[in-house]
């Protein structure tokens, strides 16, 4: 299929960079730190910690869940901002944008491919946190059937499935942000600027989400459902938040994808 070559090349570009691996390693370090910290401090944790932290010592699978909870507000959006902010601005900064365009990769196709790379990174980042969490949990605490929020207990296999679903939820949650980053990336030739702006937006949106005065705005914030993956730990699974989140993120992807297309396809490539 013509065009798939560029797709493969884009994935190779993202995942052959040392920067990408450094970021994935940093993300993987979060569950490791959680597990080691819980292991070293004997006894149940006192006071308030991240949700489910008190379950970690009893079941290593919760390392993965706590890891995702800890990464979703800042670390994950940060790394996604780096990748998404770099998409077009990075190419412009290197000057390779002009060579891609005269290759010719049409501007629309280039955007799709670039977004695809960022979206796959989102998935990889979420999976790294989950997978490292499960493995370190297995090593330090052992794993077993998970007790859900509803009080029901599900077998190990299903528990792993739920963790996989949570990782998918987290990845989908980040796709809207990736689309915003893609758009910002078309606005500038300075990748660092696009990365910073995207990261700032992800934090700003979470702050807005905490202001009760802006109730009317909350359902439209892309960060609104970021923590909703706890609903996958209910019995039966509450799919509503998964669906609402997916719909919201799809809206962001469409809107900011279209904006990015408008911008990139009318922009003079002068870098």
């Amino acid at each position: 299929m013509p065009g798939s070559a560029l797709l493969v090349s884009e994935l190779a570009l993202v995942f052959r960079r040392r920067r990408t691996w450094a970021m994935l390693a940093a993300l993987g370090a979060v569950p490791v730190l959680v597990a080691v910290a819980v292991r070293l401090t004997s006894g149940p944790p006192t006071g308030r910690g991240p949700a489910f932290l008190d379950r970690v010592a009893g079941n290593g699978l919760f390392v993965a869940i706590v890891g995702m909870f800890m990464c979703i507000p800042l670390f994950l959006p940060l790394t996604v901002s780096v990748v998404a902010g770099d998409t077009i601005a990075g190419e412009a900064g290197h000057g390779t944008l002009r060579y891609l365009l005269i290759a010719p990769a049409s501007r629309g196709r280039l955007l799709l491919v670039k977004y695809f790379g960022a979206a796959v990174f989102c998935l990889a980042a979420a999976l790294v946190v989950a997978l490292v969490g499960v493995l370190i949990g297995l090593a330090l605490f052992g794993v077993g059937p998970v007790t859900l929020l509803s009080g029901d207990t599900i077998p190990l296999g299903e528990s792993l499935g739920r963790i996989g679903l949570m990782a998918a939820y987290v990845a989908i949650s980040l796709w809207g942000l990736a689309a915003i980053g893609l758009f910002i990336s078309t606005l500038t030739d300075v990748p660092v600027g696009a990365m910073a702006a995207t990261a700032v937006l992800s934090v700003a949106s979470q702050i807005l989400g905490q202001l009760p005065q802006l109730d009317w705005l909350h359902p439209w914030l892309f960060t609104q459902h970021w923590f909703g993956f706890a609903d996958l730990l209910r019995e039966p699974i509450l799919w509503a938040s998964f669906g609402e989140n997916a719909l919201l993120q799809a809206g962001y992807v469409l809107v900011f994808g279209a904006l990015a297309y408008g911008r990139l396809s009318t922009k003079d490539v002068l870098s």
Binding site: P2, G3, A5, L6, V8, S9, A12, L13, R16, R17, R18, H94, G95, T96, R98, Y99, L100, A103, P104, A105, R109, L110
Partner: peptide, 22 residues
């Protein structure tokens, strides 16, 4: 002037740009 990804080899750079041509 030429422009390439500094972290890729010369050959990989050319392969990528060639892949961009459908």
């Amino acid at each position: 002037g030429p422009a390439f990804y500094p972290f890729l080899s010369g050959r990989s750079n050319l392969l990528r740009l060639d892949a961009a041509n459908p």
